[in-house]
């Protein structure tokens, strides 16, 4: 069975139902809207480029068992299950990984969200604050007083 999805800029994608159901949101929508499936499902927060990538990911992971979504800090210790395809996927789509995280978050594609967050964590944890700011063009919006205030908080690693 096929399902049509519409991105925010109006592009329509047709995918298998089981592929689309990796997204929790779409799965719930399909349950509600069982009667009229002629209309494409609108995804207002997801652009066409990202949606194509998300679908590509879901196509590959269509047969994966669903992972339990535990937000636990012990996940730092757990080794990540990642096959070569996933690795390739993240490296190829490095530039738009944060867009994909947003898309995965709004569509609730849990495995992709995990992969993206893992990737983002990898980037973020290896950089100094200045480097992160440069990379993502984030403004340093601390006022001088706040700078003073957090000055001694920096000391964690300096012993």
């Amino acid at each position: 069975m096929k399902v049509t999805l519409e991105s925010s800029d109006g592009q329509v994608f047709t995918v298998d139902k089981e592929v689309a159901e990796l997204s929790v949101i779409i799965k719930e929508m399909l349950v509600i809207e069982q009667a009229n499936q002629d209309h494409p499902i609108p995804l207002l927060n997801v652009g066409a480029v990202e949606l194509a990538k998300v679908i590509e990911y879901c196509e590959h992971h269509r047969n994966d068992p669903t992972i339990d979504d535990d937000e636990d800090y012990d996940s730092r210790k757990k080794p990540i299950e990642m096959d070569d395809w996933d690795k390739q996927f993240t490296i190829v789509n490095k530039e738009m990984m944060f867009e994909l995280i947003l898309a995965a978050n709004s569509m609730q594609v849990k495995p992709l969200l995990h992969l993206g967050c893992r990737y983002a964590a990898d980037i973020v944890k290896r950089m100094s604050p200045t480097e992160i700011r440069d990379l993502f063009q984030i403004d340093d919006d601390f006022t001088p007083e706040e700078q003073d205030k957090i000055e001694w908080e920096k000391q964690w690693t300096k012993l």
Partner: peptide, 19 residues
């Protein structure tokens, strides 16, 4: 969710990026 994967010392570094 991203910060789940970071250790406290890494978090302290990230927290200095922006408000």
């Amino acid at each position: 969710r991203i910060f789940q994967y970071l250790y406290p010392s890494q978090l302290s570094r990230v927290s200095l990026v922006s408000k």
